[in-house]
């Protein structure tokens, strides 16, 4: 059999192909996560015109700019409050925040915990590459203990965040973690998150070969992908207290840790208003979009 026409990668329709190649370094894991995301969106069938993506600043902050969706590249750390306004003003939109560990957990940490507490109906994809990439490899709230960064040239003295535990304890209804090695599982969890009502959070561990790995002599991104493969242990439903990654040598617990239900901010808002105001109140976002 001979093939004269090849199929187009289904991911292409999501991409602003006129902006390719993208700015990410060779072997950077962000692109891999975007691949999974694009396929997850295709699979779950959300109309692309009703899907908006919001990013903050940083390497992962550039994701919004490469996706052919309504996309917003906001300020450092503030993707979540922007997404909150977008979602509340038009609840018909599916709103995804796609950003990095520094953006979401350091400068944006306050917004992250409050959005989880409110169960705001947005999906947060956090690509964790263990350092600040865009600015040249500084220490992040996720950097492994003792590892090198440009601003911790003798080793980081800090204990990193356990991000799944942080958001789970604030009330997120869906919490998962995968690595860029786990592309199939990651895609599956993204589908679940996109279909989930409420605050969903997926941490994606990703290699940063140019900065974090080179500075710490951890090899290439292929090496880190192999490490992800060897060190990962799938434990669905495990207590998020148990999933911290403090040291580079620690086992990496991956899986879907939380999958539960509770009313969203808007559900509660409408419910309370209805109770207090009766028929005078027209529930927001139900018919009026």
């Amino acid at each position: 059999m001979s093939v004269t026409t090849y199929r187009e990668n289904p991911v292409e329709q999501f991409l602003r192909t006129d902006r390719m190649p993208h700015i990410w370094c060779p072997g950077c894991g962000i692109g891999t996560s975007v691949n999974c995301f694009a396929r997850a969106v295709l699979e779950c069938g959300i109309p692309l015109d009703k899907l908006a993506i919001v990013s903050g600043i940083g390497c992962t902050g550039r994701v919004a700019g490469y996706l052919r969706l309504d996309s917003f590249h906001t300020t450092h750390g503030r993707a979540i409050p922007f997404a909150t306004g977008l979602k509340l003003a038009n609840p018909e939109l599916s709103v995804v925040v796609y950003s990095g560990d520094g953006d979401l957990a350091a400068i944006g940490g306050n917004h992250l915990i409050h959005a989880a507490r409110r169960n705001m109906d947005i999906k947060v994809i956090c690509v964790n590459n263990f350092n600040y990439g865009m600015t040249g490899g500084q220490v992040a709230p996720t950097t492994h203990f003792g590892r090198l960064a440009t601003t911790t040239p003798y080793g980081s003295p800090e204990i990193p965040f356990n991000l799944p535990h942080l958001v789970a304890s604030c009330g997120a209804v869906f919490v998962a973690r995968w690595t860029t090695y786990h592309v199939v599982q990651l895609q599956r969890s993204m589908v679940k998150a996109l279909k989930k009502k409420g605050f969903a959070f997926i941490e994606v561990l990703a290699p940063c070969p140019t900065l974090y790995m080179r500075r710490n002599r951890l090899g290439s991104s292929v090496d880190m992908m192999k490490l992800f493969k060897e060190k990962s242990v799938v434990k669905h439903g495990i207590d998020t207290k148990e999933v911290a990654i403090t040291n580079y040598e620690d086992p990496i617990i991956v899986g879907e840790f939380v999958d539960t239900e509770r009313p969203t901010w808007l559900d509660n808002y409408n419910e309370i208003m209805k109770k207090r105001l009766g028929d005078k109140y027209v529930p927001w976002g139900v018919n009026n979009g």
């Binding site: 309504d70 906001t74 306004g85």
Partner: peptide, 16 residues
């Protein structure tokens, strides 16, 4: 949660 969030949440609402 703060004024920083307020001043960008409103911009999300405008774009909606």
């Amino acid at each position: 949660e703060d004024e920083i969030a307020s001043s960008i949440a409103l911009q999300g609402a405008v774009w909606a």
